[in-house]
Design a protein around this nucleic acid. Sequence first.
DNA 1: GATTAACATGAAATGAATTCATAGATCACC
DNA 2: GGTGATCTATGAATTCATTTCATGTTAATC
Lengths: 306, 306
Amino acid sequence: MQSLLELRHLKTLQALHDAGSLVRAAQLLNLTQSALSHQLKVLEDQYGAALFERKSMPLRFTAPGERLLALAAQVLPAVDAAERDISRQVQGVTGSLRIAVECHTCFDWLMPAMDIFRPRWPEVELDIVSGFHADPVGLIHQKRADVAIVSEYDATEAVDFHPLFQYEIVAIVANDSALASRSFVTAQDFAGQTLISYPVPDEMLDIMRQVLTPAGIKPARRSTELTVAMLQLVASGRGLAALPLWAVQNYLERKYVSAVKIGEQGLFGKLYATCNAETSQRPFLADFVSMTRESCFLTLPGITLL
Amino acid sequence: MQSLLELRHLKTLQALHDAGSLVRAAQLLNLTQSALSHQLKVLEDQYGAALFERKSMPLRFTAPGERLLALAAQVLPAVDAAERDISRQVQGVTGSLRIAVECHTCFDWLMPAMDIFRPRWPEVELDIVSGFHADPVGLIHQKRADVAIVSEYDATEAVDFHPLFQYEIVAIVANDSALASRSFVTAQDFAGQTLISYPVPDEMLDIMRQVLTPAGIKPARRSTELTVAMLQLVASGRGLAALPLWAVQNYLERKYVSAVKIGEQGLFGKLYATCNAETSQRPFLADFVSMTRESCFLTLPGITLL
DNA sequence: GATTAACATGAAATGAATTCATAGATCACC
DNA sequence: GGTGATCTATGAATTCATTTCATGTTAATC
């Protein structure tokens, strides 16, 4: 009759709370839904009570569930903090995390992630390498950045890749556009149109790299730095855009513009954090990566962890 | 590279700290010394640092070891408290714990144990059933007590037995006695002597029940309630006593009296907590038993958990 | 009523923790 | 300087628990 509660269970409970469903919690924890279901069953047997209501959306916890959740909220950060302290004691953490970014929308999730990171590793100098660089990996080699957020996995590069997440890129069209009612658009649909985009080179846009350039289509480009401005242009019929679904979800719900899948399978953008081998070793790098994945998964709608 | 630290590890570390050695910690946790050794090795590999110094008496922890210990001290009581709260939420804990005792020395460890218990289960009425009763189990059946501390396991009784611990009972003799230098004494050595004991019936004294009565020896008895008084009588040559080793350790170290093993194998007293099936179910009963075992193991020198 | 999404469940497989058996190390005591 | 006692480490075997896989069930949606 002794307690078989482990930190694992508390992590599961907290993930369930944060993620809102077993399926999503399982993704967060890199486990299967089945594993979590079994885990919770064991706990519920142990305490002789249900921990949460299965069929309620949003998820609701019972009193014992809430109590364990409170325990998790108290214990897990303490465990985290202790492990960071030990990293410091053992390795003496010093260093910097200068992040190079190649995509504009990245800022939307990078800022919150950095805000979480800062208090966790106060001794690490945290920075964004400003400006948009055609070759962020080059910045790492030049020691001008410690990490780069990139959208292509390239095994030939002499750097480590840490997968972050994947998101769908959708075509944004005016509500009254002929394309708005299509189930998906193809490269041909972009021919003769104006592509509204961020002011970056072709090869840094997934829509160009993955779809239009391979099809030999080179639409006119019009660019702006602000996502809202792009949507405004689309809404007023000046062209069409291709943006991460998570970045425009709000506007879609308000029916400001319409989104259409790109290609029959959809178009997906992937993000990786790259750094050199030395940086990979540092405990704060692993923490940065896992923390970013987690915070993105919880805040960006519709993304999938890689 | 994700954390594999579990509550189990924290419990081990804390037990190691409390018990002072792997061997003793293992007894506390109902595991083998080997299990703990493996556990700690895994942790040390994970953090890349030793957690404690192996060959130091008293045990010394390294900085990372201390940090984990601090974490354990923060986390484990919180987990405990949460699980008690859940017991309350699920079962609605009410009840009483009236403890019947048949041995005098029991008070020495029962009081501290009760002091630990009280704040953990404030809603449980805690009491000692006063007076010494020839048949403590009878008190349970009469519902005048909830638990009895007894020294014999009797499978024929319709009650549950929860093993507590075992201790050696030694013969206490005057320093200048002829017996003082013997490696052990036998029943014959008691013949013609005065046995100094607590004022209880023969069958409640282990020395009578297990050694003298079977050998047909019935020495003169002289009794007192106080252990010190017994020792004073022995020291002044009025007879000899048989007492738990842990109860007289202090006096032996000061060479006030001498102790001799009883029989070639030594004489051992065992203690059990008995209660009826209903009481066994209550969460606070299990807690009382495990907490008592732990506190006794840590404070009484030379005892073994059953 | 078909389809999708979420959770449950039993059996198989995987993986990890524990024990067993034993060796090395240290300490105390003749 | 053995000799025994006590403690810890370690590799292999075992046992045990967790996870996955495959599938079933249910509820919600169009």
